[in-house]
Design a protein around this nucleic acid. Sequence first.
DNA 1: AAACAATGTGTAAATCTTACACAATGAATA
DNA 2: TATTCATTGTGTAAGATTTACACATTGTTT
Lengths: 248, 248
Amino acid sequence: MTQDDLNNQLKWLFENAMSGISVDCVAFAYQEERLKVLCLRYRNTDIWSLPGGLVFKHESLHQSAFRTLQERTGLDSIYLKQFQTFGEVERANIKEVMSRLVPPFAMEYFPNRSISVGYYALVNHREVIFTQDILTDLTAWHDIEELPAMIFDHVQIINTAVKSLKAQFDHLPLSYHLLPKKFTIGELQKLHEEVLGEKLERSNFQKKILSTAILERIDERKIGGAYKSPYLYRFKREKYEAWVNQVF
Amino acid sequence: MTQDDLNNQLKWLFENAMSGISVDCVAFAYQEERLKVLCLRYRNTDIWSLPGGLVFKHESLHQSAFRTLQERTGLDSIYLKQFQTFGEVERANIKEVMSRLVPPFAMEYFPNRSISVGYYALVNHREVIFTQDILTDLTAWHDIEELPAMIFDHVQIINTAVKSLKAQFDHLPLSYHLLPKKFTIGELQKLHEEVLGEKLERSNFQKKILSTAILERIDERKIGGAYKSPYLYRFKREKYEAWVNQVF
DNA sequence: AAACAATGTGTAAATCTTACACAATGAATA
DNA sequence: TATTCATTGTGTAAGATTTACACATTGTTT
């Protein structure tokens, strides 16, 4: 990677993208019974950021968010939801931060102010294959309670995304995107408790979930766990898709 | 208004505002038992649009939405809520539409594509004093079921705003912004029915509303109505403000 | 003065939520 | 191998909330 390469890449990017606007993605995964967020580390620093970037002139906001995450994770099925746009004047001290992350000659490309459209994504971390890019050298899942130092207002963006996720989680079968294909009701309950931030009563949770009939029991039990082996379930494709179409 | 005036005004505007991004406001009012939206008519045309415009380099998105509505309505107390950002590539055929609304020389200022951040507002139409600007000659309330021909995707933006309003109306005392200071439970119920799009059972509605204790009964009855005069109520300031602070 | 429709209040039925009980299961323990 | 035991699956009663409807009250309408 030479200086010319970076220069050409940035030049091309800023010529083909809209100015003053970017998309940031809060990609959630459920790993080791905790909610995690996908974060990127800038090369040779301990400064992190959300995946995201400029919007090409020929792509929609949604397409931009999808492309960004696809490049990072290799996934081609990602649940994406726009949740808020961040437009405070001082939200991103671009010049100050970027002067520490890119070579001086590249600074001319960055604007004084940028507005960020926030999307949250739900992904199955088991299917993710990370890819790095020109500016970053590490991609990692971070517990939402233990975030690293992040640029701009990215911590605030994450916190807002968590609130939106909480608010919508009850109504929608969002667990579909976070759990493995087969799972137990206990695992599903743990996920709900983690997202909602409160304990749920086991037997009532089971009845409530099963009464929606969106799950189907598999003729197979979870082995290797402690004590009695619970049944495994999976989402019913028809039911799930009916819901997707209903809410658009 | 000379051509020079318009030219100077547009030149100044595009120099001092961010490019490629705008704010559009869906201002709701409750008038004659119907939900209405504030619309603007372009001079010498029958083409309408939402109030909104470019974001100045020194103002936040929220400030921009507030300024726009304040200039139009004279109000200095407006409930504002960002609800969605619209970023489809083809959402606004700017060149095509603007060529019919402004003189040819002004066309150079308009970009090919613009992203719109949508805010909905709740206003008390009784306190509104309309003001026109350089491009528009009429400001009017339109029933959300009978919208005029509008530019770009403004009809879609309105429909999305209505959905957001519906989704939030149950949880929040939004009626506060739409009703006069004093009102009857019957009037409040009509408003709820209009927003939610369904009939509500009278006596249950009354009990539910009063059980929240956010209203206080005034020692006064509504006169001039048909048959028995109902009590008048108003929102309790403490209760309402407690809620505002709680939700931020 | 009587009729009337909207209003204020009450209540029982139906539904949903919550709390807890208990037997079944199969891994853990001895 | 037998016993223990935490987890799981299911049931049920109490409590809370929602829904439907009844009825007396009120001030206008006739």
